[in-house]
Design a binder for these strands. Structure first.
Lengths: 215, 215
DNA sequence: GCACCTTTTCCAACAGTGTTCGAAATCGAT
DNA sequence: ATCGATTTCGAACACTGTTGGAAAAGGTGC
């Protein structure tokens, strides 16, 4: 079958789902297509180029998931609900791909249609919420970089370096607040709360503008 | 000269500063030490191990820079100022190393003394500010993952793919809010504002607790 | 000094990587 | 069927992380 940019990205996503970000190699992608590695370079400039297209695809996927999530929202939903829906959808899609966060983080999101779509919709939501112009981009950037940062931390391959009981006790003593008894929250809950935290900040900005300090 | 874990990490940091994250290879690190690549493996388990130690060193560096920044703060400073000082110091140190954000993002921060130090101090600041226990970890996590996410985006090697004028105009039309006329802020200002935004959220949490909804 | 043992370094090799380039093959149209 | 363009092959290059056995270096007792 003929080799196409589309099919190469398809194969890239498939092998990516199997072996993750670091395991991805041009030879594997080519093998999945029944072709030789060198042949890919007729359609793709280099590996980074392929990765960028794959990242764009993930973004599109996340964008679509976001629209679906927002469509499922009850009509009396607030803008906080909309932002939360978008963030949760984005996280879920990134998390579907092993190492998906690194893929998005490392690939240049420069003018990637998918990334821009996500950004655009988020800005629309913020605009509708009443966030002033000069805060909108910052809020959106903060939200997006937080989501990728969050998933990045989740997907970090942490092979716990065989910590002994005594060194662990030493750590607890040295860093009491880190190991403090805290309500055991699932990752989902932690993520949701962090998003709500950010929404709280946005809300404060809105109210600060609508009722200025100099009253 | 004798080969040591310390010296290997030193050489790793030096070559890292020159060639960045992706350019770092065991052979280069060895060459800088006048040794052969295989010799490193007597002191270091593997490359990931080395990277983890390097990440820890960056964290310690950032921690020290943070203490210096906090010491330089005027005595009547608020907790927002303290958090901002810590965040700015962290960002500055990460940014000193090309690809430093990826280094921190990819290496497992599991039980790394440096990372834990940063986290511990941040939690102390939040505790002093009056943030309740169940929100503290989330706020600190959000802050840290935001900083790394921010620098990650800054350090992303974005080779703009030679966008033509027409496609650019097309992008502007398709994503009006993204390309909206916004106050041209420097990265420093954007970062500062995003941190303040997060502080606003934390502040809202504090006040919500001190003056509960059911009054 | 020398022998002995441990710690450390070398060296060569393996399997794998991204990428390039000229030759071969395939395809489309005259 | 012949020509020209498009596409694929296949081998090669210079790398990469990592391993294992041989060689060297360092330290201790005699």
């Amino acid at each position: 079958m003929k080799l196409t940019k589309e099919r190469i990205v398809d194969a890239g996503m498939a092998t990516f789902a199997e072996v993750g970000y670091h395991g991805l190699s041009m030879r594997q992608v080519a093998e999945r297509l029944g072709a030789h590695a060198g042949s890919l370079y007729y359609h793709v400039r280099n590996k980074n180029d392929l990765l960028a297209m794959m990242a764009d695809r993930v973004c599109r996927q996340a964008y679509d998931a976001g629209t679906a999530a927002m469509a499922a929202l009850p009509p009396e939903s607030t803008w906080q609900d909309e932002i939360e829906a978008q963030a949760i959808a984005l996280r879920r899609v990134i998390e579907q791909h092993p190492g998906g966060a690194i893929l998005l983080a490392e690939s240049p999101k420069t003018l990637s249609r998918g990334a821009l779509s996500i950004m655009e919709r988020l800005l629309r939501t913020l605009l509708a919420a009443g966030v002033p112009t000069e805060h909108r981009l910052i809020a959106a950037d903060t939200l997006l970089s937080h989501v990728t940062g969050f998933v990045l931390q989740e997907q970090a391959t942490f092979e716990i370096p065989a910590v002994t009981a005594e060194t662990y006790a030493d750590l607890v003593e040295r860093f009491p607040h880190v190991f403090e008894e805290a309500p055991r929250l699932s990752q989902d809950e932690k993520f949701q709360r962090s998003i709500r935290l950010l929404c709280t900040a946005v809300d404060a900005v809105i109210k600060e503008v609508s009722t200025p300090t100099k009253a």
